[in-house]
Amino acid sequence: MKKFALQDHELVPTHIILISEEKEKVLEEYGVGAAQLPKIHISDPVIKDMEEVVVGDIIKIVRESPTAKQSIFYRLVID
């Protein structure tokens, strides 16, 4: 039984699944393969809370930053 969505908590940053075009765009922008991205476990509480995430997906995480207002991270979902 779920009581609340994790992402609604103010301390949990926004997690977004990228669609495949976006995925390619990101990898191209940074000139890296998916393996070079930071990782996130599929068992991560936020990922478990999201729907339809599979290993190999890329998650975009948008955090509030005191210096840059917004900081964006991409993480590869792993097992």
């Binding site: 890296v32 393996a35 070079q36 930053s65 210096t67 840059a68 900081s71």
Partner: peptide, 22 residues
């Protein structure tokens, strides 16, 4: 040069140095 912070294997640690690249 693109502002990313990487370690020796090319794995990205920060997408923008210090989050703001400054």
């Amino acid at each position: 040069y693109d502002g990313t912070v990487k370690e020796t294997r090319g794995i990205i640690v920060q997408f923008k140095y210090g989050e703001d690249g400054v």
